[in-house]
């Protein structure tokens, strides 16, 4: 009895170690599905590769919140800054924190546009029973985490007039497990067209493409609205106008 006990003991320990390694390996095999919920799938006209914001000073304010830590806000502001600099804008950015004044108050030269971005989590669901089942099946059954986020964008002129106010919502469903990753990797390789791939970093890339395109569009809309409301005071050499038809046919 003792002998069988001593010889049997290393085997379960080995299996446990193997299983643990497999779980760790499999948990890194995630498939994240991104779904635009509100506004992110809206058509965009502006081409972010063109100099849409020449001679425009922009102040970006990425405002941290409960679900939006200051470190994430700084990363977002840095990326948005690059986005608008690439389109010709002069960009300043800040992450307002408690007790710190805004650059808007003490800036010598007021920005033409001030963009505020806020983010918050709308929904989180992690299916604890599936997590247990996933562990018991060595992740053949995936764990599922379903999250939805909201990004609120407000653009004002230097005087504080609200030019554009919009809310975007995105959903991310993250499946973790060796089974779901393997199946999707095979589907990506053999069945799905490249644009429909799910493995890798496609969810993040798809969301970034949608989000930055929408923010660029909102910024163009805000800039033009500002021009109109200020009576076209700014020089507008790049404004292309459709020919007026003083009575539109039915």
């Amino acid at each position: 009895m003792n002998g069988s006990f001593t010889t049997a003991a290393p085997l379960p320990r080995g299996i446990a170690l193997c299983a643990l390694s497999l779980v760790v390996l499999a948990s890194s095999g995630c498939v994240t599905v991104y779904q635009p919920l509100v506004a992110l799938q809206r058509p965009v006209v502006v081409d972010p590769r063109l100099p849409n914001f020449e001679h425009t000073r922009v102040l970006l304010r990425c405002i941290p919140g409960d679900d939006f830590p200051a470190s994430d806000a700084e990363v977002l502001c840095r990326k948005l800054g690059t986005l608008f600099r690439n389109q010709g804008a002069t960009v300043e950015s800040e992450v307002p924190r408690n007790g710190r004044g805004s650059r808007l108050d003490d800036a010598a030269e007021k920005p033409d546009l001030v963009l505020d971005v806020r983010s918050r989590r709308l929904h989180y669901d992690d299916h604890p029973i599936l997590t247990v089942l996933s562990a018991l099946t060595l992740t053949l059954v995936p764990t599922i985490v379903d999250e939805s986020f909201e990004q609120a964008v407000a653009i004002r002129d230097a005087g504080g007039m609200l030019l554009v106010n919009d809310v975007m919502q995105a959903r991310f469903v993250r499946y973790s497990g060796v089974g779901v990753w393997s199946v999707n990797a095979v589907l990506d390789l053999l069945v799905r067209p490249d644009e429909d791939d799910l493995t890798g970093d496609t969810a993040s890339e798809d969301f970034s493409r949608d989000f930055y395109a929408q923010v660029s569009q909102l910024m163009v809309n805000a800039r033009i609205r500002s021009k109109v409301l200020h009576g076209f005071d700014e020089p507008a050499p790049d404004v292309l106008l459709p020919d007026l038809q003083l009575s539109s046919p039915p």
Binding site: P43, N221, L229
Partner: peptide, 24 residues
């Protein structure tokens, strides 16, 4: 109207008694 081909919003103005005023 729209005043720029890159925008996706509508602008409006009112003409009253010979005076044009942009609303948005």
């Amino acid at each position: 109207t729209v005043v720029d081909p890159r925008e996706t919003q509508l602008h409006a103005g009112v003409c009253q008694k010979g005076v044009w005023q942009w609303l948005r």
